[in-house]
Design a binder for these strands. Structure first.
Lengths: 295, 295
DNA sequence: CATCATTTGTGCGTATGTATC
DNA sequence: AGATACATACGCACAAATGAT
């Protein structure tokens, strides 16, 4: 039994279902109001589905629909066998996008000291489906449509792909990172058909220097968007089962004449991370005196 | 009748439900594979729910659950009376976050020429619930917990709030913008209790100059995160009913000693917009030679 | 450790409403 | 007007997870 017991007297407004609106939508609105009013506090358990069904004079499937909607909005967390709980307000860590002149750090380089930054590599459930392929191991393969679009090539083009899952040591929040480099810039392809194989010219640690040598001075573009997790992403990143988008941060490395050479992306649960944009104050004493959002 | 007719022969793999996994999850995976394999093309209608139920030898509610999941992942769009369709791959417009030295533009200033930038103001369904409050009209009120957290004040603090809904003239994509200014910096509060009222020192057009005079040189911080739409947001921004996050871009104006004075935010459907970070090349001839993602 | 009550998850059948073409 | 498609709502039964006893 939950600690509190709602009675119709304490409930605001009238009974739902009177108008043409669907009953479950009415209940959704009632409950959402109760949440924003603070009638239910973060972390608190809601009454059981059966109790809510009795209270709203409807059936359990209808209440479940309303709860599912609020969970999809990120307001509730439903836990099998335990109950339904009010989600805590997200407390997000910053991922900084920094542009400037100076030393660079490739997150996916073996030289990058992730532990010093508070992270550790982790294995994830979907590793089981990737027989023998280890994190950060360079993998040469045909890129998908997504990567092809970014790199400006056809989707059969060969890229060197590296990836890793990291977990923040303290918060245990997880992210996924990967890097896609056009294969022809860091090695050569020999042979045809099944015999086709890749001979690297450089090791991952030296990719940046190698590319800068051939195509520099380099340019960079960074974008941020969001999408809903699909497939194994929720388990791999240990996300809430519903109601949490994935923040996708992409950094594209361009040659001096604007051709894409490589891109690195970070996938992070949007309830635990946000991106922030800054610029290098070290190289110039004058701080920026404006920040424009252009559409 | 849809143009194609799936038969068990053309279906990959085996029948679902044999293992411990839920049937609807199995079906979700089957269908997701069919989508990524290109068996179903973007824009194409899927077979009806009853047909799918027959095909997978299950009931319509179970198929509906699978379809609902894929819609929540942003892969399908369900349309009452018409059918279920494969969503097109998102084509996103850029919202540029630009830092540098030079002239600034306040998106919510009456002086901003939105039409020249390809936008027009629109009224939205939820206007009906905001009796008499017009877009861009400065409104003095107690700020909520969200704004209070950003501005570093308590949630009863008085702020000047302005907002607007814009629609892109060509794509008809919509965004919501608002600005929250700490009231004491642009006017004075007089009286107590019900008689309490706000006397402005400056007009919205002059807010920037006014604040820069008193607190400059100003600093700026910009962040990007994502959340799921709630309440009227889906209708107001004409978003897909499910499976689309909202991208939230916030720009905080800080006094020279780091106190928040104002913040502007943009809410944009994440399937139609992405944020990109750049810096002012005009003020310095040297392009940035690196872009770091710091965690 | 086993058992039990509670709570959510899954699946089906059925009926009816409503939007679209 | 009719056919087709998705939407809503209810009832029922049983499974599975959890936490307390």
């Amino acid at each position: 039994m939950t600690s509190h017991n709602r009675t119709p007297d304490t409930e605001p407004d009238t009974q739902p279902g009177t108008k043409g609106r669907a009953v479950w939508r009415e209940i959704t609105d009632f409950m959402r109001n109760d949440l924003s009013d603070g009638y239910y506090q973060p972390g608190q358990a809601l009454p059981g589905e059966s109790q809510l069904a009795d209270f709203y004079r409807t059936s359990r499937p209808t209440v479940r629909k309303a709860i599912a909607q609020l969970a999809a909005e990120g307001l509730l967390t439903v836990s099998h066998g335990r109950g339904t709980f009010v989600r805590h307000r997200p407390d997000r860590r910053l991922i900084t996008i920094e542009h400037g002149n100076g030393p660079r750090a490739d997150l996916l380089s073996p030289a990058y000291d992730l532990r010093a930054a508070g992270w550790e590599p982790v294995s994830v459930p979907s590793d089981a489906a990737r027989e023998g392929i280890e994190h950060l191991q360079p993998l040469t393969h045909s890129c998908g449509v997504e990567a092809a679009g970014i790199l400006g090539v056809r989707s059969s083009h060969t890229v060197v792909y590296r990836f890793a899952f990291w977990q923040h040591t303290k918060t245990r929040a997880r992210i996924y990172l990967d890097s896609n480099t056009l294969a022809e810039h860091v090695g050569t392809l020999e042979g045809q058909g099944i015999d086709r194989h890749f001979i690297p010219d450089a090791e991952p640690v030296d990719y940046y220097a190698h590319l800068a040598d051939k195509h520099g001075p380099l340019n960079w573009t960074t974008t941020v968007h969001a999408e809903m997790p699909t497939g194994d992403t929720i388990e791999d990143l240990r996300m809430e089962p519903t109601g949490t988008p994935v923040l996708v941060i992409r950094r594209v490395m361009l040659s001096h004449d604007g051709r894409p050479l490589e891109f690195t992306e970070i996938f992070a649960p949007a309830d635990r991370f946000e991106a922030t944009s800054s610029h290098d104050h070290g190289s110039s004493n004058a701080a920026a005196d404006y920040a424009v959002l252009s559409l």
